[in-house]
């Protein structure tokens, strides 16, 4: 008997169907998460075409590795998909030879700033615009820290940089954002 997946919201069941390569289930999960994932990709990869490529690679990886995923309650699918997308973004930036500007300096940076303060009161569209103007290294670290909630040790491991570099990149990113937002407000 053919199951109508359009009325099913149970992710556990959808995951099971996806493990059996059911296109209807795959389509359902794709529709559910594609917009969020595209926004995530755009945060990391400013070029729209590149971001679409990353999105495609991410979903492909998500569906092809579905066997390895074990459903652990509400939100686990999205969390896993986000992790895959972030990795794909990282790979894309590595391909483009992402650099960490000013990573050599030894100034001590506070680890307490969340990054939110600089983007206070900005709408999503403006946040995106500001993020996309940051250099690759700044943007990567800022995203991982402020949006994905990783700490500097985790970021350092993921990006294969030192914790100091991670901190300096975040600091510089925040400084640059502050400056640009300030300019915009003054000019606006």
């Amino acid at each position: 008997m053919r199951v109508d997946l359009s009325n099913i919201t149970d992710e556990a069941y959808l995951v099971k169907c996806c493990k059996n390569n059911e296109p209807a289930a795959q389509h359902f999960l794709y529709n559910k998460y594609v917009e969020d994932m595209m926004i995530l990709c755009l945060r990391y990869v400013p070029d729209a075409e590149d971001a679409k490529e990353v999105l495609m690679d991410g979903f492909l990886s998500f569906f092809k590795n579905m066997e390895q995923f074990s459903y652990q309650g509400a939100g686990s699918v999205k969390a896993w998909l986000k992790k895959i997308m972030v990795n794909c973004c990282l790979m894309n930036l590595r391909k483009r030879k992402m650099t960490f500007a000013g990573s050599g300096d030894l100034v001590q940076y506070e680890d307490t700033a969340t990054g939110e303060d600089v983007l206070d009161n900005l709408a999503a569209k403006d946040i995106m615009k500001q993020l996309q103007q940051l250099p690759d290294g700044y943007r990567m670290v800022f995203n991982l820290y402020a949006f994905e909630g990783l700490n500097h040790r985790e970021i350092a491991e993921l990006l294969q940089i030192t914790e100091g570099t991670s901190k300096s990149q975040l600091h510089r990113a925040r400084a640059m954002l502050k400056e640009r937002i300030g300019e915009t407000r003054v000019n606006g």
Binding site: R43, G115, E116, A124, I127, A146, F147
Partner: peptide, 18 residues
């Protein structure tokens, strides 16, 4: 929060031609 604001954002607004 920053995440909430981004989660609530519409892709149509951010990338109308998607």
């Amino acid at each position: 929060s920053l995440n909430e604001r981004m989660d609530e954002a519409s892709l149509k607004e951010l990338m109308p031609d998607f």
